[in-house]
């Protein structure tokens, strides 16, 4: 503790933290403001909004699961080539040859399933709490988009092992898109890039899964949290029993 304080108050420490004093609440608020990582949080919140009962911490849980997916996903990317000729063999290789490969794949899979579950539960919790009401309407809309993106991420990842489970689930999913009025066949074509699920589909789903969709999710989560911070003090409890 002492050492940390000395570091904070040194010339270098002052240049990093900028508000090194921790004596008064005002100091600490200044330190909070000056911190990049803390700036997604409000400085103060009502005691009630911090309890398990209020949020069940489902939002935090989704972010943590997303982080776990990014880490395990990057690990898996080192050992995977998205082509029908190699994909399945790569997965077998990950499971049998790569250090911690099987474990990382498990982490990725279960994090993904849990994330779908937790995001859905988060939405239900926000509904019952009434936290979508004015002026937070648009943050709810962003949340719905994030739910859809979560499902798409999970579904695009489902194809990558190129096993029977993957192939036919995506065949059925793409056929569903084919029933959209007027545009059905076009959408299906763009989705799978050919007559049937094949190498073009695998590549498209891979790019969506590792680049396009995660970027979209990161941007939207940032906006989601920023708006959450702005609205943090709104629930005055006037309605509580």
């Amino acid at each position: 503790m002492k050492v940390m304080e000395r570091v904070r108050e040194s010339t270098v420490g002052r240049s990093i933290w900028r508000a090194p004093d921790r004596a008064t609440e005002r100091d600490r608020a200044a330190g909070h403001w000056a911190n990049f990582f803390l700036h997604i949080y409000p400085v103060k919140m009502r005691r009630k909004e911090m309890t398990f009962r209020y949020t069940w911490f489902l939002g935090v849980a989704s972010v943590v699961l997303f982080g776990s997916l990014v880490v395990s996903g990057i690990y898996l990317m080192f050992f995977y080539v998205p082509s029908p000729a190699s994909a399945y063999g790569n997965i077998q290789n990950i499971q049998t040859q790569v250090a911690f490969g099987q474990y990382m794949r498990n982490v990725h899979r279960w994090s993904a399933h849990l994330m779908v579950l937790v995001v859905a539960a988060h939405m239900a919790r926000v509904f019952y709490r009434g936290s979508y009401k004015s002026p937070k309407e648009f943050n709810w809309v962003i949340g719905v988009i994030l739910l859809v993106l979560t499902l798409l991420l999970s579904f695009t990842g489902y194809l990558l092992p190129w096993d029977q489970l993957a192939y036919w689930a995506v065949t059925v999913g793409a056929s569903m898109a084919g029933f959209v009025p007027l545009l059905g066949e076009t959408i299906k074509g763009i989705l799978i890039g050919g007559d049937t699920v094949g190498s073009a589909t695998l590549l498209r789903f891979y790019v969506l899964h590792v680049a396009v969709l995660p970027t979209a999710v990161v941007i939207l989560i940032t906006i989601h949290l920023w708006r959450w911070r702005k609205d943090a003090m709104l629930d005055t409890g006037a309605d509580d029993e």
């Binding site: 609440e25 608020a29 909070h32 400085v43 005691r47 009630k48």
Partner: peptide, 14 residues
């Protein structure tokens, strides 16, 4: 319950 408190440490620890 309605009293505002510092996010660090109250919320961040949780």
């Amino acid at each position: 319950e309605q009293e505002p408190v510092m996010v660090w440490p109250h919320l961040l620890v949780r």
